[in-house]
Design a protein around this nucleic acid. Sequence first.
DNA 1: GTGTCTACTGACATGATGTCAATAAAGACG
DNA 2: CGTCTTTATTGACATCATGTCAGTAGACAC
Lengths: 211, 211
Amino acid sequence: MSSGRGPRRRRRPEEAERAILAAARAFLTERPFREMTIDGVMVRTGLSRPAFYAYFRDRYDLVTRLLEGIGGVLFAVDRRWLIGASDGLEEAREALAAALRGVSETFASYGPVLRAIADAASQDPQVEEVYRRGLIERLVGAVAARISRDVRAGLSPDDLDPEQTARALVLMTERYLLDAFGAPSSRSSEDERAVVAGALEKIWLRTLYGP
Amino acid sequence: MSSGRGPRRRRRPEEAERAILAAARAFLTERPFREMTIDGVMVRTGLSRPAFYAYFRDRYDLVTRLLEGIGGVLFAVDRRWLIGASDGLEEAREALAAALRGVSETFASYGPVLRAIADAASQDPQVEEVYRRGLIERLVGAVAARISRDVRAGLSPDDLDPEQTARALVLMTERYLLDAFGAPSSRSSEDERAVVAGALEKIWLRTLYGP
DNA sequence: GTGTCTACTGACATGATGTCAATAAAGACG
DNA sequence: CGTCTTTATTGACATCATGTCAGTAGACAC
């Protein structure tokens, strides 16, 4: 055994931070968040464990930073349906289906990281705040707004409670996609993604726009 | 402060075990699982921390035992719809609605404990096994079977993938109800439960049996 | 070559966990 | 009642991840 910790090397702070984030991502594609120890991440960077604390407060802070960027993508792929006008039924159906395919792709790409965030959210109040309030609730709000518009426009049945329906559908999508793509070290095939996105599509479409 | 730990008292093993389970339940109605430390539970029983290990392996074993019984209830309230024959549409709709109301009631009663199990499942492989494989997956299987029957009977559209649809709907129900009733120290009103069960009903019914 | 700045680390303190040998209640038996 | 046996219970210990901090040693400036 000779990979002690290597000779002391000095990096730019920003470079070290990126190295830690990359090491964490790599770790999470192999093993679940519950096994992610700070030392386990730092050995992959060649830095010592205490160096971690120069860049992050704790491992919850670390996964929070991993979420940056991904959150934006999740909104971006839904954008067309979320902000679209309630013009026609066909257009709405098509935009929603595209949004769900986009979200599925995103989960397929970032699954293990998103899974880690979701796991961390149940263990740390700060992560819970960022993930639930800052991501899930914002999605719920946006979806609820779109549902409200569709109900008013007569595209969707008026016995729907927009807020509650939005919350149920968003939570379903989150958990179901984490279930499908969140496991570490599991790559997903083209078909798998199609099947998964298809199942979500049917439920969303039937609920909001009928058969 | 004089409630040191009290004079040494001896209980029947079974009695002590019940006391620990009760203390854990009490704890979880006040504070989340992430704050549940073994000592924090044991002070409520008047026993010392090491005594805990005579009855449970660790806190994950403890929450697993809290799940016993509740799991059965979750199947019992669904029973009529789950095992029912695919006779008529109205009967199916009514049975499904009743099942969802029953599940909502159960979550309203045992919310904090179920939330604790769900949280623990992301932190411990054993709990994950019991909760996901032993409860969620079994529900998914039963629901998928019912959906298959309904599709064959022509009650539900045949473009549904029974397995995937069942998984998405069950996960939705789980997370949405945990969201509504899982928070410690939050009692739920009659209306709240009605609103919540109503939102779920609409989604399940529209998806499986149309408008 | 000398000095300054600061990235980095070794060593320490803390807090929760799980174990074990030793202790002392409670009931059995005389 | 006294004594014995059983075993529920505990104090003390070992472990492990965490977070902190004073001190060390790269890198760049001059």
